[in-house]
């Protein structure tokens, strides 16, 4: 464990807590893409298959449980909670996210480190996570006024993977034979997808104006 990875995990945890805070306290999911939340639940479900088979550390197991429980409960909240579901804008959240699942799965079948079920599911979860934010970014461009919590949620979600990139660089230089191209490239693609969001988020913070993404 290094400081970049710990910072990354804490940033990721913060993004989930911000989202749960928004949904649970103000009982609203306005501006939040259910599709991205469903993709993230699938990412964690396919990535943490080794939750009960490979014990790495208490921290690792605890965090996996937190991410699994929180992502599935967020999907449940938006779909079934009688008040929250009313604020879900399904006419705007129209990204066909199923079109992301199949290509990621096919790619995982072709490009992976080992052709085993667990490895392919793990690789699938990496590719899927790289593109999971797309429905949310599209929704942000459609919803004119982005509220602070939603903006902070997306920012933290993008920031966590950038910190992971620093972690991979650190591990590359400190651990012999630490090379994982699949992880690195999908993590880089994921972070690059946030590039323009980061730009507008920073501009709104610098000029102290409301965050708006150009259509």
């Amino acid at each position: 464990m290094n400081i970049f990875r710990l910072a990354g995990d804490m940033t990721h945890l913060a993004s989930v807590l911000v989202l749960l805070l928004k949904i649970h306290t103000i009982k609203s999911c306005a501006g939040i893409s259910l599709k991205t939340q469903e993709l993230y639940a699938l990412v964690f479900a396919t990535r943490y298959l080794d939750l009960f088979t490979d014990y790495i550390s208490l921290y690792n197991t605890l965090m996996k449980l937190i991410f699994l429980v929180s992502s599935f409960s967020i999907v449940w909240y938006i779909r079934h909670h009688k008040i929250v579901r009313r604020s879900y804008d399904k006419d705007q959240d129209t990204f066909r996210h199923y079109f992301l699942v199949l290509p990621c799965f096919l790619l995982a079948l072709v490009i992976n480190e080992k052709f085993t079920v667990k490895e392919i599911m793990w690789t699938f979860s990496l590719y899927l996570e790289a593109v999971a934010i797309l429905p949310q970014l599209v929704l942000l461009q459609r919803t004119r006024n982005i509220d602070n919590l939603t903006g902070q949620y997306v920012f933290l979600l993008g920031a966590y993977r950038s910190l992971y990139i620093l972690n991979w660089i650190y591990r590359y230089f400190t651990e012999p034979h630490y090379v994982h191209w699949i992880t690195w490239i999908s993590g880089l693609v994921q972070t690059l997808l946030y590039a323009d969001f980061f730009y507008y988020y920073f501009q709104s913070w610098k000029n102290n104006v409301k965050l708006e993404l150009p259509a």
């Binding site: 080794d50 490979d54 793990w122």
Partner: peptide, 10 residues
């Protein structure tokens, strides 16, 4: 063999 793979990451 507990080789330090990325699998120890979240």
């Amino acid at each position: 063999s507990q080789e330090p793979s990325t699998k120890d990451e979240l």
